[in-house]
Write a protein that binds this DNA or RNA. Structure first.
Lengths: 187, 187
DNA sequence: TAGTGATGAGACATCGATATCTCAACATGA
DNA sequence: TCATGTTGAGATATCGATGTCTCATCACTA
């Protein structure tokens, strides 16, 4: 049985998806045995695809980076008004789902190139917020960095609610954007 | 040297404070050796005060519960307007500092009585938000549970910024309350 | 100063997780 | 059917962390 490389890649991707879901749900403490069981493969097989735990985490963050950087680039955040940009950014992260959630859990320990990750994923959102402050579309009494942290805080919590089935994908993006910009008190 | 029980308790409290700070900063993966070193005591001494890791985590969540439940009770959230209540709740959690942050990191795994913790700490805030929705002081197009999650998301992120020295204690409470209620776009 | 008790350092056993290896069973293609 | 290659299960070595123990040292007190 000369299994095609494509099939092998497909299986590896499936394992990564499962690993992302398990990591996002139960945190970094999940073992290789846990991941193998969740993915429905033997532990030895898991090691054939990812020779070390580190390799698996690197593959995971790599997949998240590729998904997120692509979506953020496609969102063209610098070409649309602030509100639309924030909505697009929120949808991009929420669409990445547990891939991004897993990276948040694990931290940037296993990101291959943290500077590149920051440049392609976080920085466009930061730039959008800085522009909002400069255009007086955002409060200037709080540093733009703090506004960025508040936005990602809402985003990450919404993502967890989506994964837990407590919030729809469509709603999540809207809740994040409107809460961030307008707050939850009726105007 | 017949050391007084009071002194022993004081040392134990100091160890818990250090453990809370280390856990809040580096997550649940910190070892007993890490905590002992951070607290400036020998590893054997640490085990004399807390015979197991579980005992230490239990002591930690217990201290956080006592601090938080006291502050929440004193805040009398049901006796003040919504905005003031949210501000008081935010200040209560921020004042607890790394004690609360550590519990967030560890989860409720080591909370002695999760139901009691919820009743005395989370539920008063939930009730405040439900009242806000009922009084039409808060948006009704999103479940109160989701509003609660957004509030705690902002709160926990602000707490981390305070611990990291990127936000002042006074500012943090104001940022959480105003962002949650009014958003960050100028009205 | 002598005695009591706490401390820190280090040795040690144990446990769980990572990582490696072998082997029997199985699926696919010739 | 046969050969090839993949898989799962289990045995094993290794490693780090937990938890236990001893002992020399030190601080405080009588």
């Amino acid at each position: 049985m000369v299994r095609r490389p494509a099939l092998r890649d497909h299986i590896a991707a499936g394992i990564l998806d499962t690993a992302a879901a398990v990591l996002a749900e139960r945190g970094e403490s999940v073992s290789m045995a846990d991941i193998a069981q969740a993915a429905g493969v033997g532990r030895a097989t898991l090691y054939r695809y990812f020779p070390t735990r580190e390799a698996l985490l690197l593959g995971l963050t790599r997949a998240a980076f590729e998904e997120l950087s692509g979506r953020i680039a496609a969102a063209e955040l610098d070409a649309v008004p602030l509100r639309e940009g924030l909505a697009r950014a929120a949808r991009a992260f929420i669409a990445a789902g547990s891939r991004y959630a897993a990276v948040v859990h694990v931290g940037k320990t296993y990101v291959e190139d943290p500077a590149e990750f920051d440049r392609a994923v976080a920085e466009p959102v930061r730039a959008l917020i800085r522009r909002g402050v400069a255009d007086r579309d955002l409060r200037a009494d709080v540093p733009a960095e703090v506004l960025f942290e508040m936005f990602t805080a809402l985003l990450e919590r919404s993502l967890r609610l989506v994964d837990a089935g407590r919030l729809g994908v469509e709603q999540a993006g809207a809740v994040v954007t409107t809460t961030f910009l307008d707050g939850v008190a009726p105007r």
